[in-house]
Amino acid sequence: MNSSSSNQSEFDYLFKLLLIGDSGVGKSSLLLSFTSNTFEDLSPTIGVDFKVKIVTVGGKKLKLAIWDTAGQERFRTLTSSYYRGAQGVIMVYDVTRRDTFTNLSDIWAKEIDLYSTNQDCIKMLVGNKVDKESERVVTKKEGIEFARKYGCLFLECSAKTRVNVEQCFEELVLKILDTPSLLAEGSAGTKKNIFNQKPPQADASAGSCC
């Protein structure tokens, strides 16, 4: 429990984020685009991948631990454990493939309900590959409607052109910073003394901003 206590001063909060969605929608590319500003064709993720990025949002220095999961069915039971303690979950679909969108409600939203241990956890819907506008089959309106129904944030982006990539993570993090119970957990991650903090308001709700 006391490991890595030496880097206490490096950041104010540590948040755990999770990327989920069908195989091939571009989760790993999105993460790579965010963490190292590059885009390349990646091998399909095996199980899970993990990246860390330190960002400054709202004057706070944040350490983001982002878990990138494999979309293949075989890995789904394995990745279930990564939902634990995540303050934010990003559901990614490919705007040029309808099945990746319908699977969100059929599979992925249910996975969150099933495995997330954090009831206030912020959900974000991201439609990727908007650079392929000509091949688009899922409209922006459909995305907005889904987000409203499931109470999540929503953005469309392109990991390739980096359009809206930063914003995806920034909006999610801002919402987490806005949620007292998540904030309390995030600061617990810094191994500060969490017991002196007053428990957050019992009725603090995640809600939706859509």
């Binding site: 993720t45 199980g47 899970v48 991948d49 494999a70």
Partner: peptide, 10 residues
């Protein structure tokens, strides 16, 4: 990093 456990399973 790519998780060792999952690699083993694959």
């Amino acid at each position: 990093f790519s998780a060792l456990l999952e690699r083993e399973i694959l």
